[in-house]
Design a protein around this nucleic acid. Structure first.
Lengths: 119, 119
DNA sequence: ACTTGACCTGGAGCCCACTCCAGGTGTGAC
DNA sequence: GTCACACCTGGAGTGGGCTCCAGGTCAAGT
C-alpha cells in the first residue's frame, strides 16, 4: 500500500508540518507509522481524514469537537449513529452561519450604498 | 441628547462591559464622555457604531482592520471613498466565505449520507 | 449610617490553534 | 566524506480577542 512522506501530505492537504505533528500529538491523527529511521509515513486514509478535518475546521468546528468525532471513528461502526448526529448538528450550525453571514452582508451593502450616496 | 449607561449599552448591543472598555482602550470606540463621577456615558452614535462593529466582527473582520476603518471615520468626510473601498473588499471576502461554507457543507452532507447508507 | 450595586482602574490571565526553535539524526547527491 | 536536506524531539512562544481580578469610588435606598 502506498504511503506518503510528511512533505507529500503537506503538499496534498495544505496543512503545515507542525500542524500535522500537533494534530497527532493531541490525538486528531492516529496510527501514523514510522520508518526504521523514525520518520512518519502517512496512508491514503490519513490524507482522507485530513480532508475531513480541513472541512470541519473551515466550517468552524472547534478542535475539541473534532476530537470527539475522531474518537467515535476510532471506536468502530457501532458509533455511526452518533457520528451522524454530530455531523447533523454541525451542519445546522453551518447553515445558521451562512444565514447570519448573508444577513450581515445586507447591512454592509446598505452601508456601502449609504456612503456612495453621501459622496 | 440621550445618553446610555454602560449597562444599557451592554443590553442594547450584546457586547460585554469588559469588551466595551477594551474597545475603547484600543481606539475602536472613542469620545466616550464621563459623568462628574467618572462613569461612562455613551451616545446613540456609539450604539450605532457598535452595531457596525458587531457586524464586521461577525463577518470575520479582524480588529486591526476595524481600527483602520474607525480611523477613516474619525478622519472625516474626505475618506468616504476609502471607506467604501474597505467595505467592498470586505464584502467580497464575506461572499467568498459564504461560497466556501456552502461548498464544505456539500461535503458534510455527502458524509452524512454515506454514513446513513452504511448504517 | 450603612449597605447594595453599578461603575472605575491597571494589569494579569485565559483560550484557541497553531508556530517556532534548538539541537540532533538519517539519506542521497556529488 | 561532506554537504544539503528532510525529518525528528520536547518545549516555549505567538497572536487574536477578549475576560477576569483586586481594590477602590460614588449614588441611592432603608
Amino acid at each position: 500500500m502506498p504511503s506518503y512522506t510528511p512533505a507529500q501530505v503537506v503538499e496534498k492537504t495544505g496543512f503545515g508540518l507542525d500542524t500535522l505533528r500537533y494534530y497527532e500529538k493531541i490525538g486528531l491523527l492516529s496510527d501514523v507509522e514510522r520508518t526504521a529511521a523514525g520518520q512518519r509515513r502517512y496512508t491514503e486514509g490519513h490524507v482522507e481524514w485530513l480532508g475531513t478535518v480541513g472541512c470541519l475546521r473551515d466550517t468552524g468546528m472547534p478542535i475539541a469537537e473534532m476530537l470527539r468525532f475522531a474518537e467515535l471513528v476510532r471506536a468502530g461502526d457501532h458509533t455511526i449513529a452518533d457520528r451522524v448526529a454530530l455531523l447533523r448538528e454541525h451542519d445546522e450550525r453551518v447553515g445558521a452561519q451562512i444565514a447570519t453571514l448573508r444577513d450581515r452582508r445586507r447591512y454592509i451593502k446598505a452601508k456601502i450604498e449609504y456612503y456612495e450616496r453621501a459622496r
